[in-house]
């Protein structure tokens, strides 16, 4: 979503993005002229009249599970967004019985919070597990 019109979205897709992504952009390119939607999400930059790089993960109940907002010059990390979605989906699947520690990705051990784990996290989780191998 940006403040550009759907007509500019079409031109950008047809003339540039479709040269980067085969078949063009598959998802809806949303238009928010005036930044009204960006304003309620807290990402509309009034002075510049544009929207910051806000990224919101919304679960199937419509609940915002996470967001990240960057100023315009720095791009996002798509793999980190995917990792977070995988983690939120895992937590949801276990109905909160499992939590995903720092650096978790599919295949890495989760944590099962409970009275027996208090003060014992150091036994099951090491700081090196926060980093990729």
């Amino acid at each position: 979503m940006s403040v550009d019109s759907v007509f500019v979205h079409k031109m950008w897709n047809d003339h540039e993005l479709s040269k980067m992504v085969k078949g063009g952009i598959p998802f809806p390119m949303l238009s928010d002229g005036g930044g009204k939607v960006g304003d309620v999400f807290g990402v509309y930059l009034q002075d510049a009249g544009v929207e910051a790089r806000g990224r919101f993960i919304i679960d199937p109940d419509g609940i915002i599970q996470g967001f990240e907002v960057l100023t315009p010059p720095v791009g996002r990390n798509v793999m980190e967004s995917i990792r977070q979605i995988q983690a939120f989906q895992h937590v949801r699947k276990t109905k909160g019985a499992e939590a995903t520690p720092s650096g978790w990705k599919p295949g890495k051990p989760t944590i099962k919070p409970g009275p027996d784990l208090v003060g014992k996290v150091w036994e099951v989780w090491k700081t090196k597990m926060a980093f990729d191998d």
């Binding site: 999400f41 929207e51 790089r53 919101f56 199937p60 419509g62 010059p73």
Partner: peptide
């Protein structure tokens, strides 16, 4: 026309960005 609540039941990633034909 897209309504966010039409996507209830699905995971949604909503991304804002500064502008079409910009560089990042």
């Amino acid at each position: 026309n897209v309504k966010l609540s039409d996507y209830l039941g699905k995971w949604v990633v909503l991304c804002f960005y500064p502008g079409d034909f910009t560089f990042v």
